[in-house]
Nucleic acid binder design. Structure first.
Lengths: 156, 156
DNA sequence: TTTAAAGTTGAAGTCAGCTTTAAGTCAAGC
DNA sequence: GCTTGACTTAAAGCTGACTTCAACTTTAAA
């Protein structure tokens, strides 16, 4: 137990399944060194990187988007305090947009309670171009995240 | 053009692709009669049913959940005003839960701006059991909907 | 030294919600 | 009656983010 962590240690401490760690490595989100026999050994900073990945997933970014964000940081390092200030600002906007979209949908629903129409032409809830279109125009709110799926699975 | 609608007419008027209509029929969400030659012919109420399906999809229900809701209505009819009152109330709660979860996430992010830590142990954003756990406990908020994906595709 | 746990790989499987394809049939206007 | 476009089916393909599998190797403790 020096500064090197095995895959199961990282899995346990990060909450990601070992198979997910392998997948993330294949996708270029994290990296590892190898022992003589070919087994993975991780440096500690991978834990911060994984924390970042989890936070980003919670906010609804795809792995590709996360990879791009990580890559964009100077020298591929884990975000520091300054980077994090900018990133968290962007993410907050994403979340705000998502919240706005959901509120618009909820309010449209509210207005439907009295009418019960669900007309394809006039009802806000089912009309593609109305509530939904307005919400969509809040960019970045194109989809909402599969938040909170199984979160500490620990392989098998 | 009597009261019978062809699949392409329904596709055009509902905004769903014809292939989606066939899929929904196979999954038991809608039904149709057939001509002598085996082609589908729809009654008008299918349009209301499809409006309901679209609204439910917007709120984040799965097709299985929608199927169950439709089935639960007496005689498999399209929801009337009274049904709709109850249903829209349930949906509003779903949306409220989703909004609450996103707000919690946003506020956790806000609290992170000052620290830049992203520690697996203490940071609210990446800690599975903190923000995310709290949000999760608002039942029904287990996942957020893939809201607003392509919405008027029109087959091919 | 032995043995069991933990690790490795590529390939295939999973889920939802469709779309696409292939190969053919039906409906309708001229 | 013929052509053309609309329609039919089952089956396969697609996306993203993984998981599972099979078959094998490495590591570490006893």
């Amino acid at each position: 137990m020096g500064t090197q962590l095995t895959v199961s240690e990282v899995a346990h401490r990060s909450g990601f399944a070992a198979s997910a760690l392998r997948y993330y490595e294949k996708e270029g989100l994290i990296s590892s060194r190898r022992t003589g026999g070919g087994q993975r050994r991780y440096e500690r900073p991978v834990l911060r990187r994984l924390a970042f990945i989890r936070a980003a997933r919670n906010v609804g970014l795809t792995l590709e988007e996360i990879r791009a964000e990580l890559e964009q940081l100077p020298e591929g390092r884990t975000p520091n305090k300054a980077d994090w200030g900018q990133i968290s600002k962007d993410w907050r906007h994403r979340l705000d947009d998502q919240i706005t979209a959901l509120e618009a949908l909820r309010d449209g629903l509210q207005s439907c309670i009295g009418c019960g129409c669900l007309s394809l032409k006039s009802c806000a809830m089912s009309n593609p171009g109305d509530i939904v279109g307005a919400a969509e125009s809040a960019r970045g709110a194109m989809f909402l995240p599969p938040l909170l799926r199984r979160q500490s699975d620990g392989e098998r």
